[in-house]
Simulated scan of single mutants.
Amino acid sequence: MKIKIIVPGKLSKHLKSAVDFYIKRLKRFAKLEIIYTKLGGDLNVMDSKTILNKEAQNILNAIGKADFILLDLHGEKVTSEQFARMIETDRLKGNMTFVIGGPLGVSELLRDQAKRRISLSDLTFTHELALLILLEQIFRGFKIIMNEKYHY
């Protein structure tokens, strides 16, 4: 299975080792590709809607024609077990793509085009922290699918 994650911006050094921790552990379950796209612009120069639309275009260019699951604060709330079932369903198709919004969130364009929208929490996270949480949940999902214990 191939899992692609699209994230605007880049990863801060202080989170790199944590992200690498999950990338390493996920290798036995799936081929993982994280694509960092360009941010939409500077709030001091542009309005937020323009920035969100530019980020959406950058994300859609990176996705191509693939269906994607959007991480969205206003998306569906799922448990880890439900998330694991999503992975298992898409594993049969061979590919799964996730999109994380940038510092300002996501545009309506992305919301409209998403195959599914899920929320990681009612809390708001930075896009970098959302990536780390998503990786952990993907790893947990595979452990659930394989009936393996999960203790870290």
Rank of each mutant, 00 (worst) to 15 (best):
S119R: 08
L26I: 09
H127C: 02
S17R: 14
N95Y: 02
N44F: 06
G101T: 11
I5T: 01
L32K: 03
L73C: 07
F142E: 06
V7F: 05
T79E: 14
K2M: 07
R116E: 08
G75C: 08
D72S: 08
A56T: 10
D20R: 14
K31T: 03
L43Q: 07
E76H: 04
F83E: 12
R28T: 13
T124G: 00
V45P: 01
D122L: 01
K2E: 12
S80P: 12
I69N: 03
D122Q: 13
G40T: 12
K149W: 00
H14K: 15
E136L: 10
I51G: 02
Q113N: 12
L70E: 07
E33S: 10
I87K: 07
Q82S: 08
K2F: 05
N44G: 13
D42L: 11
R111M: 14
Y36N: 13
I87G: 09
M46H: 11
G102Q: 15
I63D: 03
F139V: 09
D67A: 07
A30N: 05
T126Y: 01
A84G: 12
K2G: 03
L43H: 01
R85L: 12
S121K: 06
S107K: 03
K16E: 10
K31S: 01
F125Q: 03
Q82V: 04
A62E: 14
F125V: 13
K149P: 00
K77Y: 06
A62N: 13
E148Q: 09
K24N: 13
T97D: 02
K149A: 01
F139C: 06
K24I: 10
K16N: 07
R91V: 11
M146L: 04
V78H: 09
L60P: 01
E55N: 09
F142M: 03
F83H: 12
K115L: 12
S121I: 09
H14W: 15
R140D: 10
Y36I: 01
K24S: 10
I69Q: 06
F125H: 10
L70W: 08
K13C: 05
D122W: 05
I3E: 04
L92R: 12
L39A: 15
F29T: 07
L134E: 08
Y152A: 02
N44P: 05
T37I: 15
K65Q: 13
Q113R: 15
L131Q: 01
L129F: 14
S12V: 09
K65C: 04
G9F: 01
L60R: 04
N147F: 00
E136R: 10
K13D: 15
M1G: 11
L70P: 06
A30Q: 00
K16M: 02
N58Q: 08
F142W: 10
R91G: 12
G102A: 14
Y150F: 07
P8D: 13
A62F: 09
L109T: 15
H151G: 00
I118N: 11
K149N: 00
I5F: 02
E148L: 07
V45F: 02
V45A: 03
N53G: 09
Q113G: 00
I100D: 00
A130G: 03
N61E: 15
L129P: 05
M146G: 00
I6L: 05
K38Q: 15
F98C: 00
E88V: 11
K93N: 10
E108K: 14
I59D: 08
L60M: 12
D122H: 05
